[in-house]
Design a protein around this nucleic acid. Sequence first.
RNA 1: GGGCCUGUGGCCUAGUUUGGAUAUGGCGGCAGCCUCCUAAGCUGCAAAUCGGGGGUUCAAAUCCCCCCAGGCCCGCCA
Length: 583
Amino acid sequence: MEFLPFKEFTEEAGNLIRRALEELKIDAEPILETPPSGIADLALPTYPLIPIARQMKIEDITGLLYKKINELLNKLGRGWIKEVERKGVYLNFQIDQAKLTKKTLEEVLSSGETYGNLSPKKETILLEHTSANPSGPLHIGRARNPIIGDTLVRILRAAGYEVNAQFYVDDVGKQVAILTWATRNLSEESLPPCSRDKPGYRLVRYYQKASQLMLGQERVAEGINELVRSFENVEEKSLAEAKRSYQPVLDGVLESLEKINVGFNSFAHESAMIKSGLTQEVIGKLKQSSFAGHEDSAWYLELKEFGIKGKDTKFYFTRRDGTSLYTTRDIAYHLWKAGQADHLINVLGEDHKLEARQVEIALDLLKVKRKPKTVFYAFVSLAEGRMSTRKGRVVYLDDLIDEAVALAYQEVKKRRGEDLSETQLREIAELVGIGAIRYNIVKVQPEKAIRFKWEEALNFDGDSAPFIQYAHARCRSILKKAGNSVRIGNPNYTLLSHPMETALVKKIARFPELVKTMAENNRPNLMAGYAFELATLLNQFYRDCRVVSSGKFEAPRLELVKAVAQTLKNSLALLGISAPDYM
RNA sequence: GGGCCUGUGGCCUAGUUUGGAUAUGGCGGCAGCCUCCUAAGCUGCAAAUCGGGGGUUCAAAUCCCCCCAGGCCCGCCA
């Protein structure tokens, strides 16, 4: 049983209105909306009825409907609807607050950390995210991908799906070939000093140097192409050599991601799409297509018919030498993925939009029904311009993590240096710093481009993770303080009638619906907004309502605080952020 | 040249899918609040031609058309 009180309330109101309209012989479908805060829980504007009941004045229609609805309400009984009020040309519906409070608090407190989870769907999702080229450490432009991806994974799991988070390792592409060539041919002495003692930072210098050489020297470019061809021919020796080059880089990337609570369930290797013969199968089938053509022995699909526009509408799926291209292998990968799960989701940079469309068209031509839904995100740029590993114009995720944790340490030491141990200070700094990074990235809609600014990335005030973590800590602090106070078996929830208390209950009650919305629309940024609003309400409640030693209010308020803490914690969990008990 | 995305106070941002009641918050600024559950908090003030112009509608930030600006793309790269 899913707990979706506002959904049930809205359905009840909808049915009631439909019945009233029917009995009044007005042929219209009600459109319900959520009114501005405080006015009501649900509203029906009666404007749309004007053209239908032309002979009547708007006031009369509203009045008539108002009377009819109340009549029906008395006749049929009430579920979630407490009352209906008439305000101007609106009919406002109020939810039964006493019932909502009791049901919500019971639900949260009995469900605990599963509050907000929807019933299991028995459907699986393969969600691919990050899939960064293992040619250097992760920079913050790319870091948007794992944070959006991992948050989505957590949300979809809460929504009842079995989710496989997969990293697609591009181990046969040009980037890896460059790196492999570099480790084979360049010497340590020819490179600039290493900025961090990690394999990825040591190796990226090789990659950067070889990238430069490749542009000027034919010999280097040929050596790299030679490697690409050997990958394509599945020459085990060079594939093994490539793996020795990129694996330490990839391990470093995964290590950095682990620090920000991002993990994967599986890895798929691009080389496997060649080894299995699937890539050749794709090439063979695409050649049969009526949209296929070739220029010498380089094959392409003409995509004009599919709405692709621009300078060149051809999509090449083989090179002149017959080797496959990244997109060709990606089609093979998706062909394979289609057999792995019920739903496919990808998180990709917006630069992949055309590529994703090409894959989709190819999958159509191959008669593959199960196609991916893609979440695209815009790039994070620097004031100096776009980030580029090759040019070394980047801010690395590791540096951002270090800065965030160091700053968080300063802050927590300033506030709690006196009464917390060094270990505790370090632990809190870690949680706060990491939380801030994830939150500040995920809170913005993925499709908006971000210009990276340190002060924004390290924001700890207002709309930030520490704000929410602090609200949680406040709750835990109250509960701790109340500690041994007498527990009454059945708290009197009807005492929770202060505006802040009802506002908190309503907010908490909407959490499962939010999970549903986020999962249906792949919108992880909504989680950040919700957590912030709930934390804000808690702070206002904290200001207005004394909990500990508040007499008869203490017991029910403690239950409310418990429920708020749980919901904040669960919200943060979906964001991949820890909820400390103190800070 | 074309396609996709974005444009909301000084800065950042919600709302746009499904048109409706004074356009949401944050940062920064100014003025206040700790004898009381942690002030990473709270309250108030100033600050917005919702990129611009047309149109549809009783009603437009939201829908349609045109234009402007920024991002991304139009490789036998990935």
